[in-house]
Design a protein around this nucleic acid. Structure first.
Lengths: 134, 134
DNA sequence: AGTTATGCAACCGCTAAAGTTACGGATGTC
DNA sequence: GACATCCGTAACTTTAGCGGTTGCATAACT
């Protein structure tokens, strides 16, 4: 795949699930549709389960299901569940001896923080249920 | 180093140069201060030269110098010169057969576009000269 | 018991980026 | 002109992250 593939996979899968929320899907089915591997799917969806967006069941007739109504799951929820910030915050954290570097880092970081918040706010305006209708 | 290191290196170096704009600095000096390698410095600063932010001179007493007044160089100029977008735009561009994926991609991309513009706008509000005084 | 799922750990292979070495070209100093 | 200094660039090595893969334990249903 490519950069961003985890988020793409997660959003894509949840958007599909929003279509028939009660249907159980296996990682194999999902992987096939997404053109990837069941283990990769489980890795990504596992994060979403930790965040309370999905539930999974083992065994025969097991699989994945939405943990809430699709109207109550926003793109921001998914984004945050994967905790991979797209706005790369420059985590040097080495407290460099150089005061200019320090001032610079502070400045840039504050802008990035703001941008990140902005991104999350915008993503939270769309639910995975809405995506289908766009 | 780490992710974002090119931008960090570029901003850090220019901020220093803003302090004494007429001083010539060699890639060796810069690399030593930044804790990296002269070739890496030349690679990064080369981008800035292409963008018209720096000039370089070969030979004895050669080196790097600001191409304009530091007040006229903004953080956005530097960011754009390196053309490495921090807000990763999901360039799948495979026109997948799945309409949901298509709708999703469109939605997310438009948000990311907006965020990217927002970032540039914010970065353009600070010049490398101002950083020193923060 | 047998089948079908997830959960998880270990490993392979690819890719992107920094780091490194090497050499050519330019520009000064002697 | 010989030499030192510095950039420009290409080629290679190293490192880190990630998708992909395999294997096995666990759980649940028939």
């Amino acid at each position: 795949m490519k950069r961003n593939s985890r988020l793409s996979l997660a959003l894509h899968t949840l958007s599909h699930m929003a279509g028939s929320p009660d249907q159980v899907r296996t990682s194999g089915d999902i992987a096939e549709h997404a053109g990837t591997n069941p283990v990769v799917v489980r890795r990504v969806l596992g994060k979403l389960r930790e965040a309370g967006l999905l539930t999974s069941e083992k065994g025969h007739a097991g699989g994945w299901r939405l943990a809430r109504q699709p109207q109550k799951i926003t793109l921001a929820d998914v984004y945050l569940a994967l905790d991979e910030r797209m706005v790369a915050t420059d985590e040097t954290s080495e407290a460099s001896a150089c005061s200019i570097e320090h001032a610079l880092h502070k400045r840039v970081s504050s802008v990035l923080e703001e941008i990140e918040e902005n991104l999350v706010r915008r993503l939270s305006e769309t639910s995975i249920a809405e995506v289908r209708g766009i």
